[in-house]
Nucleic acid binder design. Structure first.
Lengths: 259, 259
DNA sequence: TCAAAAGTGTTGTGTATACACCCATGT
DNA sequence: ACATGGGTGTATACACAACACTTTTGA
């Protein structure tokens, strides 16, 4: 595969980005995957990503790839929360050549049709529940496409696991949960994000107090209220506030057996 | 476009590692710097680092460079705490060519003679107080070497600032502080680490309780006691325990205006 | 009238902070 | 004796978990 490349200079490194893009859909954490069209790992699922171009930083490349592979509008992509996870540099992580990959984590709200319509690679993309994507060889049920659940390409299973862990931790001490929500959301929706990512139930009154007591976490939308699926009392709407960190943190219940 | 590995589609990237190695000396946080011998930035100070070799991961390269530039024994280097910070990939961060650098943070105990004796690049290395290294253009006092304090090479000032911030945060929710201490240490020494890195005073009785109440943070060395510089009551000695995370965290006082 | 979801109140338990106090050692 | 640093005790404030309760909507 490296034929045609100049063999006399030092061995070239390729630098790529890989993206772990998460969303919360239907009460489950989903990750954006792409079915590979070429070898190696043709036909298997992989994290979206691609090469860093000569005049790009890794961050720029990540946003460009994200736009190409989700079909989102450029201004939406520019505003997304995108964060470096870590860099994966094992010499054998790609069977053909030396590829060092900078992995990123992105959090997006649930989109009407996640990765359809737009040209480019978007038609090969799909939202996959992380439980399904992370389980190697355990294909869950007959309804799901073949390939998902039978292992991700390259070291992407490791990257996904690292990213998932990072997202869980981030919710504890940052205000990032609102990145999973639409521009205006109810506290019930925000709580559902926490419960989905952490896979734990939270006490609603205490969650509510905690969020409202943290200055700048959320801001009330003055007169607005939303009918939550028809049933129940309409809930007040909130917007993300200016704060970015949570002091003191909002710890998940399972963690920290204090005694 | 994204999935294709066209070898002609990209220019070669060089991949390097940069190391922010910290220690606590004489009540101040110090970082290991190297005076550059070659252009660009010849004569100015820089973080130690170097190229990732064709068959190395970034982690392996970081440990190798650390051993070469500090003259430490290989087994000591192998046991050190080394952690990926992030990757710096701005296209213009190196004036000569495209260099992507994976930055690492390392925490080491105070060493008798930090970077002397051993061959290689160790004789160009020096421990520098971070306040001195971080201040661009502020040369502190006539006793210090010229060059330190007049700005670091490349984007190393940014890397150093990021690393310093990370170390401060790490002390809050991990047991890493003991990495700055000798194999056996007193609680006073451990507290001094926190106070030095955070630049705040801590209440000794409360700090003591907090550390001892966290299972696995430290383990008492049975019969031992050390005379702390001669003055005062001899202090009990402790070893690092098996725990790695701190639940609940040990927050620095300045952070988190709770109200 | 009932179910469902939002929102408020109260109370016990634990952790943190601030500070007072005692102990052992060198000068 | 006294300064210095190690170690213990305790009262107060604050934060959190648990749970009972009220409110507003659709069916």
């Amino acid at each position: 595969m490296t034929a045609g490349y100049d063999p006399h200079a030092f061995e070239p490194f390729a630098v790529t980005v890989d993206l772990a893009v998460f969303t919360v859909r239907a009460g489950a954490l989903h990750v954006l995957l792409i079915r590979r069209g070429q070898e190696p790992y043709a036909g298997t699922w992989a994290l979206p990503g691609g090469f860093v171009l000569p005049r790009e930083s890794a961050e720029t490349a990540a946003r460009r790839e994200l736009a190409e592979e989700t079909g989102l509008a450029p201004d939406v992509v520019a505003a997304l929360h995108l964060e470096q996870l870590r860099t994966y540099s094992d010499p054998d992580r790609d069977p053909r050549m030396r590829v060092v990959s900078v992995a990123f984590t992105a959090l997006v709200p649930d989109m009407p049709e996640p990765a359809a319509g737009g040209g480019g690679d978007a038609d090969r993309a799909r939202w996959v529940p992380v439980g399904e994507a992370a389980a190697p060889g355990a294909d869950p049920g007959p309804g799901s496409d073949p390939g998902v659940g039978s292992g991700l390409a390259f070291d992407h299973a490791v990257i996904l696991a690292d990213a998932r862990e990072r997202v869980g931790s981030k919710l504890e001490y940052t205000c990032l949960a609102s990145a999973f929500c639409p521009p205006e959301f109810t506290l019930g929706e925000l709580q559902a994000v926490y419960e989905t990512v952490w896979d734990t139930a939270l006490d609603r009154p205490n969650f509510r107090r905690k969020v409202l007591a943290t200055p700048g976490f959320v801001e009330a939308v003055p007169g607005a209220a939303r009918l939550t699926g028809g049933r129940g009392k309409p809930a007040a709407l909130y917007r993300p506030g200016p704060a970015t960190t949570l002091h003191p943190p909002l710890l998940r219940p399972s963690e920290g057996p204090t005694r």
